[in-house]
Amino acid sequence: MPKIVRAALAAALVASAGPALAADHTNLEEGLPITVEDAYPIKENGLEVQSYFQYNRTRNDPRGLSSLMAVPRVEWGAFKNFQLSVEAPYRVGTASDTDQGAFRAQGFYNFNQEDLVLPALAVALGVNTPYGRMAGGTETELKFLATKSIGTPDPEGLSPYSYVPRRIHFNASWFHNYDPTTGREAERRDRYRVGVGYSQLVSNNVVLVADIFRETDRERGRAVNLAEIGARYIVTPQTVLTGGVGVGFGGDRRQDFRVTAGLQHSLSFPYSFDPPR
């Protein structure tokens, strides 16, 4: 079956799985600015444009060491507790994975609001079809997400004045490549990403975020091992700016460091200009 047909089928599967007030700085999004996200989708009927630029300094790459990725994304709260997103990242630079991009579609469903015991739990299913120079095979991603508040520094509530909402997030993804490339730069058929994130308000308008994760690379023998830290700043009720940095760790790491800057904006349209009758 041609790759494009498989990708379309996978996307249709995601879409058939079913359908956030304004842009919300506490509702984490992948890449804005860290990789680990929370277990909550945007709100029903919400429509957001998101975009980020990510510079990666790679290592042990014979072709080159730098890569700049631009990611445009549209996210839609298709129905309660479910969002659909599409994005089309593209990388330029000197590293070996540049001059290529991907089309990615994802459905994300949240099962429950976190309560006093149970974390918020969600799953996401996505399809990722690369294109461009030396593009690899189409992958699907099955992702499990959880978010748990860790409450105040004083859980008995004796000092709730110093109350700071803090949450941790857990993400685990399984990627399956339906058509891995072979040869000198052979791709993995299956790989994973697992990570833990942390977020807390530092002021009314700023959320501090941090994560640590490991993602095995498409290319065999390499991985992305990163610790990231950043902030999400709500500028207007519908706009969030994000920025973060990450450093690589581990002997098989692909990156030495990463810098990410992005924007998230809730759209006020489409709407009717005519007065309602």
Binding site: A20, L21, A22, Y40, I42, K43, E44, N45, G46, L47, G77, K80, N81, N110, F111, N112, Q113, D115, L116, V117, L118, A120, S266
Partner: peptide
């Protein structure tokens, strides 16, 4: 357990 969904609407 409270077990309820978030059900946010924009």
């Amino acid at each position: 357990l409270a077990l309820e969904q978030r059900n946010g609407v924009s």
